[in-house]
Every structure is written in structure tokens, then in C-alpha cells.
Design a protein around this nucleic acid. Structure first.
Length: 452
DNA sequence: TCTGGGGTCCTAGGACCC
DNA sequence: TCTGGGGTCCTAGGACCC
């Protein structure tokens, strides 16, 4: 049984501070400055911090409130996923031009199997030169984003390697040196070992990978469970023969939202859940999926999180069906203390057999109107999602001043900085939020990728 | 008014079936 | 007077990842 490959032929690529780097690329005034992308509302968290912001201790998953306290001078932006997706698509296309076996892990990360790349051999000097060239080509296709790359004899070690010289670095682990590198490290370097597992291991005196490797598999299983015990037993020995798998299938589709103020009105909760069901259904139809299990997620005022699910006899992608089920699941829950998050998801997915290629994918079915939507509109007090209309960072265009982006908004005023990736930092001007000469600007739709 | 949003995988118990 | 033993499906919750 193969434990690892004899050569360093798995590559892991990770774009550095990805969301923040895209913002700095497109907004020249932010280059060299702390930039924080994430939820900008009172309950937001940091998604990505630029390295300048990390110097102040700002980290992913930290609450935005704390990030503001640590680095008040940072630009706080709510994120432009179309731009991130476009950059990601360009990088993934580059990787797929190198090898047919590319496994994206997220927008900013992927494995590449070099055994299927067109290289003369897989010796360390060859893969090193290839990886350095690849990093340069990433910068070319993304107009300047940097990537960190690791190359090793398995997925596990390639991922660890890419972390070692961030940002903008390359690490190749020579075959045969894996254990010497790995064993002194803390167990938390192992993907899948988070705070709960670190604590369990700490209680039996295990802190490093070497100490982990010294534990018997039975003891490990008794502490962390069957699957994780078996996995840790192998990874601690640098044993990993998982294949690079392209085209992993989607297992679930979901939408959730945390509200600035806890919800208490059942009618309002129902109307939100119905809207979310519609969004899930729309996305499912967009990717040709349908599913049998509908799940409602509710986070209460005290952060306890509940889920309730119900499985249909046959798959659906219809708004009305998903909405009806979600609403009936909500009906069984006690939400009297207040609700901070609501979400709707569908799992148990099957490919959608498209009966008629020319059928339009709209879904006009009506949701039974037992709970009419509260009169008027999204900004009902307490129901406003964390991201408001003029979100910081959003691209805008002004009738006479041209293109810029939203610096901030409040008190009926939007502040815009006029600049683009190509034009130097420009003036900052303020407008009334309802100024008709100001509009959201969207980049031209990217070419849909060839497959999928 | 600590604690996002979109996912994946695992566990454990009960139902149900052979 | 006790009580088998799988396998699969479903549900709820939790850990973890980016």
C-alpha cells in the first residue's frame, strides 16, 4: 500500500490575503495600507486582513468590532465577490492549463497533480523551477496578485509547505525529509485539528506531531473518534495517499443571514425564510441541482444553534416546496427569546434531469400566502442584514466624475473615492444616498468557464 | 450589546428491514 | 421474564475549513 509518493509531485497554491489583495490591486490608495474585508456591521467578522492589518494583530474570524479597536485606521470593506471570483477563475484556468488534475478547495486555494503535468521529470530542481514560474504566471493573469506555493509528496505535506514561506513564497519538501520537518511542529498544523482537538490532545500531554505519532491508534480513537483517530495516526507519520480529485460534486446549497438586531416577530421570520428558500431554489436551478432534504437553521439570541430538517420522497428545486417545508420547520421551534440568524439549505442533491433544454429556469410558482409579507421593504427596523445598500468597497460610477468606490455611508450620505486600478488615487466626494447621478457599477460579465 | 457565510465530514441514536 | 446482528436511512449537533 502506497503511503506517499516517491517524488514531490503534489502542488498546493494559496493566494496571499486574497480578498484584501484584490482590493489593494483595484484601489491604488489602499496599497501598502491596512485593509480588512468582512462584515462591516455590528455583528460582522473579519474575512481577510491584509498583511499591513495583520501587523496590528487583526486575524480572520475576529469580530470586526475587535479589529476596529486594534486597527482603527484600516479600510473596512464588505467584499466584492464578483471581482474575487473573476481573479479565482483566471488562476484556476492557469492551473488547469498545467495539469488536468486540479482540485480547488476554495476561491483562493487549489491542489495540482504534477504527475499529470507536462514536466520532463519530477526531481526537486525541476518542480522548483516549475513552481517559481507558475507563481510569476499567477501574477500575470491576476494583474499582480501573489501566491504562496508548496510542493511535496502528498496533499497533506504540500499544504503544510505552502504555509511555510508566506506571503509570496515557495517551499519544496524533498522526498525523505518529511518526518524531520513535520515532527517538531505543533499538532495544530494538521488540517482538521482545530481548537477542540488541540485541547483534547493537550489533556493527554500531546503538543507536537512527534508526540502524536507516539500515541497508539486505539488510544487516539478513544480520544477523538474513529475517523479522526485513524486519520491522525497516519498523518502524524506523514502517511497520506489521497488523490487529487477534480470536479468534486456539490453536496448542499444554503443561504443564511445574521441580523443586526435579534428578530422577535414570527411573521417577519417567516417572510425571511420564504425569501431565503427562493434564493436557494434559484441557485439550485442555476446549477442544475435538486435535492430531497430541506434544513432550517436558527441561531438564538444566546448563540445556541438549532437545525431542523425534513426529507421529501423526491428531489425538488421549487421555491414553493422548499419554502413550505422551511416554514413548517420554523413553526415547530420556540423563538421567543429572539433569533440572531436564520438560514435555509437543501442537501441530498441529485443532478437535475433537464427535460427540455429550452425550458426557462424561472420558477413562477406561488408560495401559499398564509403569512403575507410585512408591508414594505427591506429596511424594516431590526431586519436589515449586515450589508447595506451602499456597502463599503462597492464599485460605483458617477455621471460626471466617473468610476470610484464607496468609502463609507451613513446619515443619508455616501462617500466615494474616485479611482480605479489604472487611475491614481483620486478625489473623495460625498453624495446624498439617493443622488440619481450615482449608481452601482458592475464589471462586464466574465466569460463563462468552458466546463461547469 | 463578542462570535459571518458557505461549505464538508463525522457521530450517535432511533427507525426500519432482512 | 433476556436482549441477535447487520445494513441503511434519517435527524440533530458539532468540529472544522476558507
Amino acid at each position: 500500500m502506497t503511503r506517499v509518493r516517491a517524488q514531490a509531485s503534489v502542488l498546493h497554491l494559496d493566494l496571499d490575503a486574497f480578498f484584501a489583495a484584490v482590493e489593494q490591486r483595484d484601489k491604488p490608495s489602499l496599497r501598502g495600507k491596512p485593509v480588512i474585508v468582512g462584515g462591516v456591521g455590528g455583528r460582522g467578522v473579519v474575512s481577510t486582513a491584509s498583511y499591513e492589518a495583520r501587523a496590528y494583530g487583526v486575524r480572520s474570524a475576529m469580530s470586526t468590532r475587535e479589529a476596529r479597536a486594534r486597527c482603527p485606521q484600516a479600510a473596512f470593506l464588505s467584499g466584492r465577490f464578483d471581482a474575487y471570483r473573476a481573479a479565482s477563475t483566471a488562476v484556476m484556468a492557469l492551473l488547469r492549463s498545467c495539469s488536468p488534475l486540479v482540485e480547488p478547495l476554495s476561491l483562493d486555494e487549489a491542489f495540482v497533480d504534477l504527475e499529470r503535468a507536462d514536466l520532463p521529470d519530477l526531481e526537486v530542481p525541476t518542480v522548483t523551477a516549475f513552481a517559481e514560474d507558475l507563481r510569476l504566471r499567477v501574477q500575470e493573469v491576476t494583474d499582480g496578485l501573489t501566491a504562496s506555493v508548496g510542493v511535496a509528496s502528498s496533499k497533506f505535506l504540500a499544504k503544510i509547505a505552502s504555509e511555510l514561506r508566506k506571503p509570496d513564497g515557495l517551499t519544496v519538501i524533498s522526498p525523505g525529509t518529511e518526518i524531520a520537518l513535520l515532527h517538531p511542529m505543533r499538532v495544530s498544523v494538521i488540517p482538521g485539528v482545530g481548537p477542540a482537538t488541540v485541547e483534547r490532545l493537550r489533556r493527554i500531554g500531546v503538543h507536537t506531531v512527534a508526540e502524536l505519532a507516539a500515541i497508539g491508534q486505539e488510544e487516539l480513537v478513544s480520544i477523538v473518534g474513529k475517523a479522526q483517530g485513524a486519520s491522525l495516526h497516519q498523518l502524524a507519520r506523514a502517511e497520506d495517499d489521497r488523490a487529487v480529485v477534480p470536479d468534486r460534486e456539490t453536496k448542499s446549497v444554503s443561504v443564511e443571514s445574521t441580523y443586526e438586531h435579534d428578530l422577535t416577530d414570527r411573521r417577519q421570520m417567516e417572510s425571511i425564510v420564504v425569501k431565503q428558500a427562493g434564493e436557494v431554489a434559484r441557485r439550485m436551478r442555476g446549477s442544475g441541482l435538486s435535492g430531497r432534504t430541506v434544513t432550517l437553521k436558527v441561531r438564538l439570541y444566546d448563540f445556541t444553534t438549532l437545525s431542523r430538517s425534513s426529507t421529501l420522497p423526491a428531489p425538488t428545486e421549487e421555491t414553493a416546496t422548499i419554502a413550505r417545508l422551511a416554514r413548517s420547520l420554523l413553526a415547530d421551534l420556540d423563538t421567543s427569546g429572539g433569533v440572531r440568524l436564520l438560514g435555509v439549505g437543501v442537501s441530498g442533491l441529485a443532478d437535475w434531469v433537464q427535460e427540455d433544454l429550452f425550458a426557462d429556469d424561472s420558477d413562477d410558482s406561488e408560495v401559499p400566502e398564509e403569512a403575507p409579507e410585512p408591508a414594505s421593504e427591506p429596511d424594516q427596523a431590526g431586519a436589515r442584514p449586515s450589508d447595506v445598500h451602499w456597502a463599503p468597497g462597492m464599485d460605483v460610477i458617477h455621471a460626471t466624475d466617473g468610476r470610484g468606490w464607496v468609502w463609507g455611508s451613513g446619515k443619508g450620505v455616501v462617500t466615494v473615492r474616485f479611482e480605479t486600478a489604472e487611475t491614481p488615487p483620486g478625489p473623495v466626494r460625498s453624495f446624498r444616498v439617493d443622488d440619481p447621478s450615482l449608481a452601482r457599477w458592475r464589471p462586464p460579465a466574465p466569460e463563462p468557464p468552458e466546463d461547469q
